[in-house]
Amino acid sequence: MKVGVLAIQGDFEAHRRRMEQLGAAVVEVRKPEQLDEIDALIIPGGESTTFLKVLGEHGFEKLKQFVLTRPTFGTCAGAIMLANRVENPSQPGLGALNVTIRRNAYGRQVDSFIGKGSAVADLECGGGPLEMVFIRAPKFEHLGSNVEVLARQGDDPVLIRQGKVMASTFHPELSDDTRVHAAFLKMVRNGNK
């Protein structure tokens, strides 16, 4: 089983290190055809506009086919990519998550923060509060009925799942806690949710 990390731009190395720490074989994915060689994908933090421009139309369609059928986890910019509606400003989404997401919803870098949040649902790898690193983070708005909230920070849903797709507006790859990635990996290994 191979987990791909989209390596167009962003903190893909942090995800790679985390997945390797958890015992997964990791491939850095820079070209659309590499999606055929992997079983699951992580879309990292970074700039979603850069991801879109580098992917181009062909890459976007190929990525869309992947995320609509295979386990995928997106953090921050990755979550923006996976949404079906993006605001502030509006841009194309892959449509794997039935949510609206608002870019830079907390403000600029000086408004970035490290908070604590609670796992609402069982992450299947132990409970307790999660450290959450928010960097120029987006917010989920208008969640569809088929979207499950796995964790909140205050009242805001910050970690969600729909079928085989997970997304967080914070960066679990920048904390020492491995539970969020472990939950994704468990879902991948089970072949389904």
């Binding site: 390596a7 167009i8 731009q9 962003g10 903190d11 893909f12 190395e13 942090a14 933090g45 970074g46 700039e47 850069t50 921050c76 910019a77 870098q109 970035s112 690193v133 960097i135 120029r136 960066h171 920048l174």
Partner: peptide, 9 residues
């Protein structure tokens, strides 16, 4: 953290 997000860019 923000510098991490700019990597590869």
């Amino acid at each position: 953290g923000l510098a991490e997000m700019l990597k590869g860019g």
